[in-house]
Computed example of a mutant assay.
Amino acid sequence: MTVTATDRRTMAKGPAPVAASGPRRSRGRLGRWLGSSLIQAFLVVVGLVWLTPLAGLFLSSLRSAQENASGGWWTSLTSPGQLSFENYSALLANSGMTQAFWNTVLISVPTTVLVVVIAALAGYAFAWLDFPGREPLFLLVVALLVVPVQIGLLPVAKLFGQLGLFGTIPGVVLFHVAYGLPFAVFLLRNYFAEIPREMLEAARMDGGSEWRIFTRLVLPVGRPALASLAIFQFLWVWNDMLVALLFAGTSSQPLTVALQSQIRQFGSNIDVLAPGAFLSLVVPVVVFFAFQRHFVQGVMAGSVK
């Protein structure tokens, strides 16, 4: 029998791979489907468990004090007639609570803006500008991260009393800015340091000043980190009660302190506490979802190359 060149090439390649049988492929697809379904079911359960207290708070805020005292919030699921917005109307008509809400805004927004702006300038300087004492100063900033807030409460309170800032909104803002800057500078400096040096050198060769490079190049590139920092700082200040409880006066107290005073005065005043707590929760959630895309980019920055 004569062996042709084509036969020799076929024998050199070896036997053709055997395709996977139909049942084996079906079992593989079934296993992947079951695995993904189990993960999705687990995530759904975790989400429902996490949302249950929030749903209970919202439903409690829509019920009267008598209904909350007579049964749990879950009873409103079968009796929707219990639900109304009268508690929110009464809360908005309460001048003390509305003033506390605006005080929270006046404390959180300026603090967040100041921390982000100052930290961005300092982070760029520590990352790309050469000046005497840059490394020791940055080490000092990092060392301030380990200083707890409780250590500075009494000394700063005494200093603010001498300066006339104790019990005022600017005093609370300054305290939050001072203790928020070390982490903010550390975060933005490390993020800005990842910008390619060639990009900055090209901008300098084109005649760009440091300020122009910072505003037109560094800030747009660092937008994810800036958004992440803004979200973190806003949430920390909005939910703070320790600093506000000590430094804020009666006319400058935020919503957290106002709600705490309601507990102290009226005990289980759920018809005031529930809508106030839910109102204080809505704003951070709205801020988070507004910057969610930039926040995810900032968290994932540097994870892949």
Rank of each mutant, 00 (worst) to 15 (best):
Q265D: 08
N269A: 05
F234I: 04
L235P: 01
A274L: 09
M241W: 08
R264S: 09
F234A: 14
N269Y: 13
Q262V: 15
Q265R: 13
Q265F: 09
D271Q: 14
D271S: 09
V272Y: 06
I270P: 00
Q265P: 00
V257Q: 06
G267Y: 08
V237Y: 10
D240T: 07
T250L: 06
I270M: 06
L235V: 15
V243N: 08
S268T: 11
A277N: 12
Q265M: 05
G249R: 10
T250S: 07
L255F: 15
W238M: 01
D240E: 12
D271M: 14
Q262D: 03
G249A: 06
V243F: 08
V243K: 03
V272N: 02
Q233L: 00
S252Q: 07
I263D: 00
A258I: 01
L242W: 10
A274N: 09
F234M: 05
G249V: 00
F234R: 12
M241C: 07
A258F: 13
A277F: 05
P254C: 02
F234S: 06
L245N: 14
V257C: 02
V237I: 05
L245E: 09
I270V: 12
L245T: 08
S251E: 15
P254F: 12
V237M: 10
L246R: 05
N239C: 00
Q265C: 02
G276T: 01
F247N: 00
G276E: 12
I270K: 11
A248F: 04
T250K: 07
Q233K: 10
G249W: 05
I270F: 10
V237R: 03
S261T: 08
A244R: 04
D271A: 15
I263T: 11
G249L: 01
F266V: 03
L273I: 14
A277K: 00
F234Q: 05
M241I: 15
F266E: 00
Q262N: 11
Q253H: 13
Q253S: 08
Q265T: 10
A248P: 01
Q233T: 13
V272R: 06
F234D: 03
A248V: 04
F234Y: 07
L259K: 01
Q253A: 09
T256H: 11
S268V: 08
G276S: 06
S251A: 15
V237Q: 03
G267E: 02
W236L: 14
Q233V: 09
L245A: 13
A274H: 09
V272A: 14
G267D: 01
G249T: 11
L245R: 12
T256I: 01
A258N: 04
A244P: 04
V272K: 07
W236N: 15
G249F: 03
T256W: 12
L273F: 11
W236K: 07
G267A: 09
